[in-house]
């Protein structure tokens, strides 16, 4: 399979952390400007988005519909601010468009809509649906004997949806080893902690019993994220699920692990504090 010649060189880990930090700052600014939106999950997945778009995915911002590109599908569409921030920072569209999030006549809808923004691969916002779409894409790739990969992120609260388990049963059955499912295991959902609202544990065993190859990682450790993506590529007979343990609101102390930040945006005072904290960290956050 030919790979894109235009792809930027892969950044070293130190630089990737700086990118993740930059993405967090963009998210805070975007949400402040929008006045509404989902903060916790957007901040909590910055390293995963960084690893995908600045390391792993075979993509070309100048040619977003490149036929053999890897596809990333966001099933938990409410964390789309981090997707927009990532796509813009990677060169898919100008940064100034980020400040139009959730506003009238904007391309940047509150949840992702296919066809609105270059690089957005799917429509989501009713939980559970993006995962099935991603599996459909993986199936099409197999039918067409193409080697590109599909990466799909779901939330963990999203796993309450029955459709997710229909899909989880389907993919191993079709031996779709070309899909990597990333579960943002941040332990919160809108109404509280997942284990209080609708317990998911033992999640790894559940997925293994569905015949997924399961890897558990620290979702803020870029080396671990990349290593998991690489390992998934070596699995031949079944799909891979990566349970990425993350801290919702990561990088901003007063937001971390507080489920109330799931669905709200910071006000200007909160955003100022958040940005100060992120800028002080200079990309070096909590890996020791």
């Amino acid at each position: 399979m030919p790979t894109s010649q235009k792809k930027e060189p892969v950044l070293d880990t130190e630089k990737l952390y700086q990118v993740a930090n930059k993405l967090r700052q963009l998210v805070v600014d975007m949400l402040l400007e929008a006045g509404t939106g989902h903060t916790a999950g957007s901040l909590g997945t910055a390293e995963i988005f960084t690893a995908l778009y600045f390391h792993t995915l075979n993509i070309d911002p100048q040619n977003p519909n490149m036929k053999n590109r890897d596809r990333f599908v966001l099933s938990n569409g409410h964390i789309v601010p981090i997707w927009y921030a990532t796509l813009s920072h990677r060169g898919f569209f100008p940064e100034k468009e980020l400040w139009t999030l959730r506003k009238i006549n904007s391309k940047l809808q509150g949840h992702p809509v296919l066809g609105t923004v270059p690089g957005i691969e799917n429509t989501s916002g009713s939980l559970g649906q993006g995962f099935s779409q991603a599996i459909g894409m993986a199936l099409a790739a197999k039918m067409d004997k193409q080697n590109y990969r599909i990466y799909c992120m779901t939330g963990d609260g999203e796993l309450d949806e029955g459709q997710v388990w229909e899909a989880a049963m389907f993919a191993p059955n079709k031996k779709l080893n070309n899909i990597t499912w990333i579960i943002d295991r941040n332990n919160i959902q809108s109404d509280g902690n997942t284990e209080d609202v609708m317990p998911l544990e033992n999640l790894k065993e559940k997925l293994e019993s569905f015949n997924w190859f399961v890897i558990e990682i620290d979702g803020h450790n870029i080396a671990e994220i990349i290593s998991a993506f690489n390992m998934a590529k070596t699995i031949t007979q079944r799909p891979t699920a990566i349970i990425a343990h993350t801290i919702p609101g990561k990088g901003v102390k007063f937001m971390e692990n507080d489920f109330r930040w799931h669905g709200i945006a910071p006000n200007s005072k909160e955003a100022k504090t958040a940005l100060e904290e992120l800028k002080t960290l200079k990309g070096k956050i909590l890996y020791d």
């Binding site: 296919l114 649906q129 991603a134 199936l139």
Partner: peptide, 12 residues
């Protein structure tokens, strides 16, 4: 439900 999502993904 999954079937309809798979179909949408295939169509893309």
């Amino acid at each position: 439900q999954n079937m309809m999502g798979i179909a949408a993904g295939l169509s893309m």
